[in-house]
Amino acid sequence: MWFFLRRRRSCQVAKDRLKILLITDRVNCSPEMVELIKRDITKVISKYVKIDKENMEVQITAKKGTVRGGKAPVLYANVPILDLQKQERRFL
C-alpha cells in the first residue's frame, strides 16, 4: 500500500511551478499582487451589489490565443453576486 502513498514526482512539481511562474513573469504580476487586485475588486463591486466573497475567484491564467505556446495571459475574475430574492424567500 505504501507504494501508492509515495511523494508527488518532482517533475510534476517543476511543471506546475513553471506554469504559474511563466505567466506571472510575462505579465509582471506576482500571486501576491493578484491577492491585492482581488481585495480591490471586492471593495469596488461591493459598493454596488452584495457579492459572495467566500466563493469569488481572481487569477491570472492562460487563455488560448495567438501568442507563443498558443496561450495569452488573461485576468480571470469570477464574482458571484448574492441573490437577495432567494435569501428573502428563505426567510419567509
Binding site: 514526482r9 518532482s10 517533475c11 510534476q12 517543476a14 511543471k15 513553471l18 506554469k19 507563443r68
Partner: peptide, 19 residues
C-alpha cells in the same frame, strides 16, 4: 531521471516554451 519522473521530459519543456 526522466524515466523515474524526476526530470522534465523534452516534451514537457517544448510544451512550456512553445518553440
Amino acid at each position: 531521471m526522466v524515466r523515474r519522473g524526476d526530470m522534465m521530459s523534452s516534451e514537457d519543456v517544448v510544451d512550456i516554451l512553445g518553440i
